[in-house]
């Protein structure tokens, strides 16, 4: 699975459903132009995790992902949302359909205003090495997506952006 740094940071009005200051810096946009409006879901309760999962499943169907890719994206979203809920103390997850060079993709952005991640590398390692432990599941989520980016500031919050593209 390839990871690229093609995700370009651009400033864009924050499409959150409740008005909050933007403590985590610029939100993530994608070169090639927006192809849809981001849909933002709250991640504040355990029930929200299920709601997000359903929403992501529906979005992957719309984008035309294969069954295996649907499973990958929904699983990654589940990891990200859980991370937001448990470690970030709640936040939001936005879904956005992308089009670039004739390919369709789904962008997931998980955002929280929690304590932030002290050591991102360590957080990405966790899921990989301990297998069953996983405080984060971030490393796993990264392997399930094509593009993955974490922006975190201790004491301020964490934003994780991840994209998977459909097969050609």
């Amino acid at each position: 699975m390839k990871m690229t740094d093609e995700v370009v940071a651009t400033r864009r009005s924050r499409p959150a459903s409740r008005p909050t200051p933007d403590p985590v810096g610029p939100s993530i946009g994608v070169s090639g132009g927006p192809s849809g409006t981001p849909v933002v879901h709250e991640v504040r309760t355990e029930e929200d995790l299920l709601v997000v999962r359903h929403a992501v499943r529906a979005a992957t169907l719309e984008c035309g992902f294969s069954l295996i890719d649907q499973t990958r994206v929904v699983t990654a979203a589940s990891e990200l949302a859980r991370n937001t809920y448990i470690h970030g103390g709640g936040g939001t997850m936005s879904l956005e359909r992308l089009n670039r060079h004739g390919r369709t993709g789904l962008l997931l952005v998980a955002r929280d205003e929690g304590p932030g991640i002290e050591d991102v590398e360590q957080a990405l390692e966790d899921g990989y090495t301990t297998g069953a432990g996983l405080g984060h599941g971030l490393g796993g989520a990264r392997r399930l997506m094509h593009e993955f980016r974490i922006h975190t500031e201790p004491g301020v919050g964490t934003t994780v952006s991840a994209i998977r593209w459909t097969e050609r």
Partner: peptide
């Protein structure tokens, strides 16, 4: 299910 098995392996979880 097959997609679940593939995804779990890619997640790094082999359920040893």
């Amino acid at each position: 299910r097959p997609p679940v098995a593939i995804t779990l392996v890619e997640l790094g979880l082999a359920l040893e």
